[in-house]
Every structure is written in C-alpha cells, then in structure tokens.
C-alpha cells in the first residue's frame, strides 16, 4: 500500500484530506498540534517540521508521496516564528524529499500570492508574477514558499511536484483567513469598493489535492471553485452584515491596531477587499477532469457563522 505523508495534518484541511486518502493509502501525519480521536488508519506524529525528528520520520517511514499543508497562515504568532516555520520548514521538507526517495509532492500554496492590485487582469493564469509582497509584506513568506516549491518542480524533475494555488477556501470546518473575516460580527469593507471574489468549498479543495496526487500531476495550478460574486454578495449570503469604512481613515487605524495585536489582519489585507484577485482554473481543469461539486450558494450555506 502506498504511503502518504501529510504535514499540518491536524488542521481542518489536513483532517479532511487524511480522511479522503485513508481508504486507499496509508496516511501518516506530522503536525505540531495533536489530532485527538484521529481515525484508526491514520498515524499522527507530533513533530516540528524544522526539527531532526521530522527528518527521522521521513527516513524511517519512507513515504511515497508528501502533501505539504503545514503552514502558519494567520498572524497570531510571532512573525519570526511564522517565517521560520513556513520558509525554513518548506526548504527542509524539500531537501528531505530529495534525500529519502519521495516520488510525488503536492504543496498547497494560495491564490493570495498574486497580490491584489488595481491593474490585475480578471482571471489571472499561473504565469502571472507573484507580487503580493509589494503591498502585503506580511505574507511574503508564503510568496517565498510558493517560489521555492515552483523552482523545485524544475530543479528536481524526478519528483513529480505540484503547487496548488486555491482561491478563498470556505466550508463548515476550515479556519481560513477569509472564513474568519466573514465570521466577524460586523464585516468591514472598504467604502466604494466591491471586487469580484471566487470561493472554493473545503471538500472540493480536498478532492483537488487528492486528485493531484492520484493523477501524478506536475506543475503549478490555480484551483478555483464555481464562478465569482461581488464581495458584498458573499457577505450577505454568509449571513453577515457589512460595515463600510472610508479607507483613508481606517487603513492607518487598522495598521496601528494590527501592530498592537488588537486586530487580526495587516493593512495589506485590505487591498483584497478592494481589487479583484480572480484566477483562471483552466490549466488545472485541462490537467485532470475534477470539477467542483459545490456551487456558490452551497458553499455559502454550508459555511456556518
């Protein structure tokens, strides 16, 4: 039986993926956090990606495939630690993969790496430069991770590597940044801006990751759900109430509050509420025939506030 290692298995997306894969292959997990009551077919190892014990895990278990989900995407931790876990963790994981005979690797990056700018074309393809750090330096580690993994595809052609860049992930269990944002009691928006946004359901993303693994895909892929809606519609449909704020006043305020740790999002995140970051899923659609099961209404109604 094939062995798959999932980093960040205790996160919501990791759990979904582990359950999805457990039927067909042996699933190993690595995470700093435990997964209490994990399903019996799944082994969870409480290790840190940056530590020797993680390397030992790969050396002894020799997984055939690795899915890299072990990122810190929120800003609650110290920025240094976050950078370390994301960039260094990925770097070491990539090294281990070459050393211990991993055949396939899937790195789940995100669509945010393109950055939100007024000059963004609609439905960007994968060749668009990753410019998020220009206006949103707090996620430059995620951009770096994406670049590391994308370069790895070409530097190690013997390992079938895929980098997935999903759009906003929503669902009943995931704690994505966008989910936390939409769960706020009053959802702040920037006055006079209402960009088109894309969403994908957590199950559809799980399926996309699993199929990437099973179909042995190689390359960089945007992963999109069904269609796009204006942000205000998304807020209304998820049961939220929007709060329109004038940007010139509130951008500096949010910046200050973020610095003090009283507000979860840096000011750069506000650009994603202003400018469209819509991705073209054509390449992924052509590479494997998986289609999203959830329409936008289903995504919104499955998402619990």
């Amino acid at each position: 039986m094939e062995k798959v290692l999932i980093t960040g298995i205790s996160g919501a997306q990791g759990r979904l993926l582990a359950r999805r894969l457990a039927a067909k292959c042996a699933v190993l997990g690595a995470d700093r956090h435990p997964w209490p009551m994990h399903p019996p077919g799944v082994e969870v190892h409480p290790v840190d990606l940056r530590k020797k014990r993680f390397e030992n895990l790969l050396r002894t278990e020799r997984p055939d495939a690795v899915v890299h989900l072990g990122f810190i995407r929120h800003f609650r931790t110290d920025p240094g630690v976050r950078h370390d876990v994301n960039v260094l963790g990925t770097k070491q994981l990539l090294d281990h993969c070459t050393r211990y005979g991993v055949e396939r690797l899937v790195v789940v990056s995100s669509g945010y790496v393109y950055g939100a700018f007024p000059e963004n074309p609609y439905y960007m393809d994968e060749d668009r430069p990753l410019s998020a750090s220009r206006s949103y330096p707090e996620i430059r580690d995620l951009v770096e991770v994406d670049a590391l993994a994308s370069a790895f595809i070409w530097r190690h052609p013997e390992i079938r590597t895929s980098v997935l860049r999903p759009v906003n992930v929503l669902g009943p269990t995931v704690h994505s940044m966008i989910a936390e944002y939409l769960r706020l009691s009053r959802v702040p928006t920037m006055m006079g801006f209402n960009p088109m946004m894309q969403f994908i359901h957590e199950d559809d993303l799980t399926e996309a990751i699993a199929r990437t693994l099973e179909d042995r895909l190689r390359g960089v892929f945007n992963v999109v759900g069904s269609g796009a809606v204006p942000l205000h519609t998304a807020i209304r449909e998820t049961g939220g109430r929007k709060l329109s704020l004038p940007e010139p006043l509130f951008r500096p305020l949010f910046d200050r509050l973020f610095g003090l740790g009283l507000w979860p999002y840096p000011a750069g995140a506000l650009d994603f509420l202003k400018y469209p970051v819509t991705l073209s899923g054509r390449r992924f659609r052509e590479a494997c025939d998986v289609r999203p099961e959830y329409g936008l209404e289903e995504i919104f109604s499955s998402f619990r506030r």
Binding site: A228, V229, T278
Partner: peptide, 22 residues
C-alpha cells in the same frame, strides 16, 4: 440536492462547475 435559487444569486448562475472562469 442543489438548493433552488433564492433570488439573491439568481438561480445560482455559477453552480455549474464548468462555468468557473470567463
């Protein structure tokens, strides 16, 4: 099982997964 359109998103115009982009 797809829920019928509630008139907010219309009849869920984007529900069909083939209509993902452009």
């Amino acid at each position: 099982t797809r829920s019928p359109g509630r008139g907010v998103l219309g009849a869920d115009p984007f529900a069909d997964p083939t209509e993902t982009d452009l």
